[in-house]
Design a protein around this nucleic acid. Sequence first.
DNA 1: GCTTCTGCTTGGATCGATCAAGAGCACCGG
DNA 2: CCGGTGCTCTTGATCGATCCAAGCAGAAGC
Lengths: 351, 351
Amino acid sequence: MGVRNASRGPGRPAVPTGAPPTLADVAERAGVSRQTVSNAVNNPDLLRADTLQRVQQAIAELGYLPNRAARNLRTRSSHLIGLRISAAQEGTANATMDRFVHSLVETSRDAGYHVLLFAGEADDPLSGYDDLLRSTAVDAFVVTDTYLGNPQAGWLGSRRAPFVAFGRPWDAPEAHHPWVDVDGAAGCELATRHLLERGHQRVAWIGWRKDSPIGEDRREGWRRALHAQGLSSAGLAARVDDTVTSGAQASAALLDDAAPTGFVCASDTLAMGVLQTLAARGLTPGRDVAVVGFDDSQVAQVVTPGLTSVRQPLEQVAIEIVSALEGLLGHPPRVGDGVLLTPTLAVRGSS
Amino acid sequence: MGVRNASRGPGRPAVPTGAPPTLADVAERAGVSRQTVSNAVNNPDLLRADTLQRVQQAIAELGYLPNRAARNLRTRSSHLIGLRISAAQEGTANATMDRFVHSLVETSRDAGYHVLLFAGEADDPLSGYDDLLRSTAVDAFVVTDTYLGNPQAGWLGSRRAPFVAFGRPWDAPEAHHPWVDVDGAAGCELATRHLLERGHQRVAWIGWRKDSPIGEDRREGWRRALHAQGLSSAGLAARVDDTVTSGAQASAALLDDAAPTGFVCASDTLAMGVLQTLAARGLTPGRDVAVVGFDDSQVAQVVTPGLTSVRQPLEQVAIEIVSALEGLLGHPPRVGDGVLLTPTLAVRGSS
DNA sequence: GCTTCTGCTTGGATCGATCAAGAGCACCGG
DNA sequence: CCGGTGCTCTTGATCGATCCAAGCAGAAGC
């Protein structure tokens, strides 16, 4: 310390030059011990008022901020939250993810955390997690792709790694890790009711194949809304791949066979297919046939009449997730339950 | 150490339980000193072959990975790269950013770095940077929004903070920090030439207002392509805000006044406006009038005939950026020049 | 046989923070 | 006058890795 302090006396300007100031530098300037400075930062209540102010002034003058690495080492926590971004899938789900990441970063900041992004091997859903965990690089994870029936949740659980899932544990309903999800069924019920209220009697469904629990859940919302009005859902549904072409084909077939006046879709991508079919047949979306998508993506906003779409409350999702994380990382840890949020409907020209 | 080692003898199973193994644990198990283990990890060449193998086996058996915090503290580097994500702007630029982040994360991983996301106050372009810098939380930054004439570059430079910019220093051409950018002019020249080759003689431009250097740069590419063919660009250009409506209005006016048969736009958003106008007039994109956008966003891919669009080589951008970062952080630091990459054209139904 | 030279290995110090325990002081009741 | 009780602040140890300089072999040279 001697050498160091000799080179940075109290007369030193506050403008940062060379190495950043350390706790010891602040201590010397304020004429107190290191521990007192540490307390001033972490437990201000312990100090006498005048001492606290003296230390705080020294901190301000030197522009001191605790060294993360040192603090992390001592406290065994990094205040980082790991988020694995999946392989670049150029689908509309992408945009959702982007909005979510934004929200997560901002919410985390307010809670004193930063988000660490990482990528893994495409074929191994677990890669990346293990290294970060063993090297104590992150305090916890946010897991997003729970829908693949993928082993992350169980694996992380067995390692006692703190994590919160965005998405229900579809495969294992009895799982007792915290999760936050959006109620897709409620969203589609909302969308369907919206069309029914506008006078539509025959509202069709275009969703994903049966092996997708999310798709089945959303479909259930559509069915529920119809049945609540005493309407039949028979013959009004299609289950296809999540592509524009599939949506176009499915809607063409449904128009021919069942003559629906409205479509509720499991995704904006499928809805775009419907719009394509309508255009090809000279039908005007919103006037002749109503269309509702899901995700409120970029596309829904810029497409010509505007696409009505179910919008996930991702800001709220982020808030709930961070709240759950704070619980997990608190002392003592508090393990919350699952949280299910209700989406809203962004109404545009297509309905 | 004594207590700790007593509780985790050599017979310890490899399955992680409780605290992760430390370098000292590995050393004891392999019957060597800590430094030898450290060398086995960081400078394997220094060890005799049989010793190295013994150590590596111990590492594998214990599942040892160096503690990040401890390593960071000692080496004064975190192997983290900071990336500030701008306020959630729901524009097509969003999608570009998303693709870029993906690429950056993957490329960084291969170079041994992770990406730390952070947010700042919306009104202060510098907030967030300072804290991370002073707390030595990141080794370097990637700066993305250089177009606002914003002070980040200069500020970071004056603090001697290592950073690489995605985007040219438009305001300060003589700036000597490393940057990587995409040649917008070349992209638009490519797009325009593409239309000219398809027989179009009158190709119009719809771009941003004059205060955007990026917009002017892209416009220059369009102009260059026309002039190269001895064609005039007079009366064929509009400068408007980056919205669908503006694009629609501008294209309508241009169609009335100058009867172009093709449009090159500064963004996919504007191009969507053109498509809207064409639809309203009963014109078929691609057959009657050609349209080219910029960014190859989600929208370009799912819109009905498919929107031809200039695609930025973001994967390559990420590679160049990480390479520049490695230079900056190397010993001795190597400061590279600016790198300008040429985009490609994703041809679809609209042309 | 003794010295010198590599080359691997070793204990100790260090990075900058926090934890745990102790020391100095004023104030209180006995 | 003394021991106890807070309150405030200080000292020494510690987290787990890497840097440093010294130690200790074995091989080569005289």
